[in-house]
Design a binder for these strands. Structure first.
Lengths: 228, 228
DNA sequence: CAAATAGTGTCTTTGAGACACTATCGT
DNA sequence: ACGATAGTGTCTCAAAGACACTATTTG
């Protein structure tokens, strides 16, 4: 390292030049019971003690943002696999945290119900999935500016769903088209026409030779996602 | 502040818990000479001395991200007015800056040529507008990961332009439809059909009674943006 | 009137939306 | 046979794309 760099670094790192802290906060979504749900944790400490908040963590000095996200996924949702997530927005208002200056980089992660099978609900009374609709429409208070972040995420997921592929994240490896349609209907929060939905999604999926069975009606063919 | 908060704060702020630094980096775009241009500054210091980089700054401890952006706009581009800008993405790789850990929140700002009239090119040999196309297509090296950020911004601006209103940021208060069409053609990087363009944009603009004059061809009506 | 750019009318193609019909299971 | 859900054919309508035409200025 150059001498000048050292000088710069020393000056910048000195105490008189305080830095903001950086955290990641996650919108971890899943779909079950025909609802979009999001993982929230009950705060154990002040400020906002006992209120719900997004799972998050501070970003370590030698840790990328993505790694911090993965660490939260593992710690708070018991998800060890690599799952889909994407960055949403960075919130930087000066007083968003009453303790100190914290800049929060928000991410959303989409998890299929299957991936959450080993998410132990009993052990995690502090971390639970709540219907997004309830959070947004009721006036339950949420810690920090996290309600705003949840609303922002809800809009983003709706927009993303319009352009299709993201909904597959909520489905298992194979799925029926009625299942896929249901996912879109929940994400977009509106009814879709069967025939039109199928026309639109057909280039994105490929048939398998499997069918559902047992139900008192015509079986449904299973599809898988087509990667092109 | 609670006792517990103090304890937390003390622990977190202690030296053994080093924090990343936070910066904002700006993609300041303008349009002239029928090209999309971006403001770059020549680095005076190592690392990457004499190379081009995005204008940016560290975020102060009592300064919001937006305020940091405005500070850069003023300092590097002499823009005192409030102009349009939006957050793009936050870059958090551990080694993106060789000196120390810096997380960069990138923004794009769109400036009309008129707003830049008092941008003194002679005084600013270190800050200049460069054609985006040249930067992306040539293999000039750009400091840090800023080339990647520039490419990311170029895609975003293209997507945004598809959904319309953003292009008005590059136009003056009133403008002709051929001028507006030109803006879209540059942003989208493709030719458009006159008749179709006009059909699409007509709900977004309103006529004035003014016309261009002096050119050796039919005068063009001036329009202004319609806010609805 | 010729060159140049502004501005309009209309045909074709594509895709979203709506609806009615047929197919196949369990009971 | 019938209730229930899976799956298909096709009409309508609106927007995107393509092209040809008319309009108004200066020199």
């Amino acid at each position: 390292m150059h001498e000048k760099d050292k000088a710069f670094l020393k000056n910048y790192s000195s105490d008189k030049f305080d830095k903001p802290s950086v955290a990641v906060d996650l919108l971890i979504y899943t779909l079950y019971e025909d609802e979009l749900k999001i993982l929230l944790v009950k705060r154990a400490e002040s400020p906002f003690k006992d209120m719900l908040s997004l799972p998050g963590t501070f970003v370590g000095i030698e840790e990328s943002l993505d790694d911090a996200v993965k660490r939260v996924l593992k710690a708070k949702a018991q998800i060890k696999e690599d799952i889909y997530f994407e960055q949403l927005y960075t919130w930087g208002d000066v007083n968003r945290d009453p303790r100190m200056r914290i800049i929060s980089v928000s991410y959303m992660a989409l998890v299929s119900a299957g991936t959450l099978e080993n998410f132990n609900r009993d052990e995690n009374i502090s971390a639970m999935f709540y219907p997004v609709k309830d959070i947004i429409e009721s006036d339950i208070e949420i810690a920090f500016d996290h309600k705003k972040i949840i609303e922002y995420g809800r809009e983003r997921i709706k927009n993303k769903a319009e352009y299709m592929p993201i909904a597959f994240q909520f489905l298992e490896e194979t799925f029926t088209l009625p299942q896929a349609q249901k996912v879109y209907e929940i994400l977009l929060d509106k009814k879709l026409y069967k025939a039109n939905f199928r026309k639109k999604i057909s280039p994105l999926v490929e048939e398998t030779e499997e069918f559902t069975s047992g139900a008192a009606h015509r079986p449904s063919r299973l599809y898988r996602r087509r990667y092109t």
